[in-house]
Computed example of a mutant assay.
Amino acid sequence: MFNLAIPEMIFEKVEVDGRPGYEVTVCTPEPGPITTTGGLGLHVDRGLDALREADTVLVAGTGHRYEPDPRTVEAVREAAADGRRIASICSGAFVLAEAGLLDGRSATTYWELAEELRQRYPALDLKGDVLYVQDGQMMTASGYAAGIDLCLHIIRTDYGAAVANEVARRALVAPVRPGGQTQFTQTPLPPERGNACADTRGWAMRNLDKPLTLTDLARHAGVSVRTLTRRFHAESGVSPLQWLLHQRIERAKELLETTALPLDQVARACGLGTADSLRGHLVRRTGLTPSAYRAQFSRIGTAEARGTSSAA
């Protein structure tokens, strides 16, 4: 139920220019009552014909080993042949692999199932300890909450980091994380747990282009550096400077996506100083150089309000 609920929860929060960004349809080989774990019942109205209406097909796994339904395998294979974007969560990767869609491609699944996936489908390149993998039009996520990361990655690909991070905030989950992080990686910026430093955080966000120091932040908060650091860590789970660096990188990503500013201007606007500094921080955070990030996620010249329907 959790893997199936993730796409509905995440995609339904996307709004672009006041309109829904996605329409999510749940389908199954045999419409009607479905048995799930935990004693909960589920009723699904649509059959696999729904895949013909989809732009993205997302196969939700079960969290444990199972034999892919041949009807689902064939429907997913046909959807891929028609040019649909194909994704999976957890053991859903077995469906993609059984359809031959992962042959010669990088993929992942839940870590407890990784070795079995490797043995059953040796033609794929298993990345056993990452959150998610995209290889062309095929995307696979590891287990459970990594499905949230994959959905946010899809949103970022379609609408940009600003929209994806807004969805993350509304869903009270971590901002978009790069797929190369391990399945055991902690959240890069935990949810805030208080508001004593809220005004100072807001002030810092409005002044990211300035060379802010701990003394500057403490002066704004009206406390000592030591008190600020203690309160900040209690509320944010990170030090003030770690939080500040995270926000600078997020601002840089948004500027790379939404403007054509030269890299040195992007670096200055988000407080990272130079293009070289921007490059170093972005590579460490995302695995991409600023130019590569812009090439992949730039929204300039694209229709911001385009919609995508997704069938799980």
Rank of each mutant, 00 (worst) to 15 (best):
D264L: 06
P240M: 01
G202T: 12
Q265E: 14
I249Y: 01
D276P: 00
Q296K: 10
T259N: 01
N207H: 15
T259H: 05
L217H: 10
P240C: 03
G222N: 07
R285L: 06
R226E: 15
R285H: 07
G237T: 13
V283F: 03
T215Q: 14
A269P: 01
L241I: 11
P240E: 03
N207P: 09
L278N: 00
L278A: 02
G202Y: 08
Q247C: 15
L272F: 04
E257Y: 03
L217Y: 05
A269M: 06
L228P: 10
K253C: 10
R299S: 07
P262H: 04
S239E: 13
D264N: 13
T258Q: 10
H220M: 08
L288C: 03
R284T: 06
R206S: 13
L288E: 04
D276N: 03
T258Y: 09
A252T: 03
P211D: 10
L282A: 00
H233S: 12
H281E: 14
L261V: 05
A275V: 03
L245H: 10
G237M: 09
A252C: 04
R201G: 06
R251C: 08
F232I: 06
I249D: 00
G287E: 07
Y293V: 02
L217D: 05
R299V: 11
Y293Q: 02
M205Q: 14
L212I: 13
R279N: 13
H220F: 14
H281D: 07
F297H: 01
P211S: 11
S224N: 09
L217I: 04
R226T: 14
T258N: 11
G271T: 03
S236V: 11
A221N: 10
V225A: 15
L255K: 00
S298G: 07
H233D: 14
R226W: 05
L217P: 08
R251T: 11
L256W: 00
R226Q: 15
F297P: 00
V266T: 02
R284Q: 13
R284F: 05
V238I: 09
Q242I: 11
T259K: 02
T213D: 10
D209M: 07
F232S: 09
A204G: 13
L212S: 11
L263D: 02
M205L: 15
G273R: 01
L255E: 00
E235M: 11
T215K: 14
L263V: 01
E257N: 04
L245M: 12
T227G: 01
L256S: 02
S291M: 06
Q247E: 15
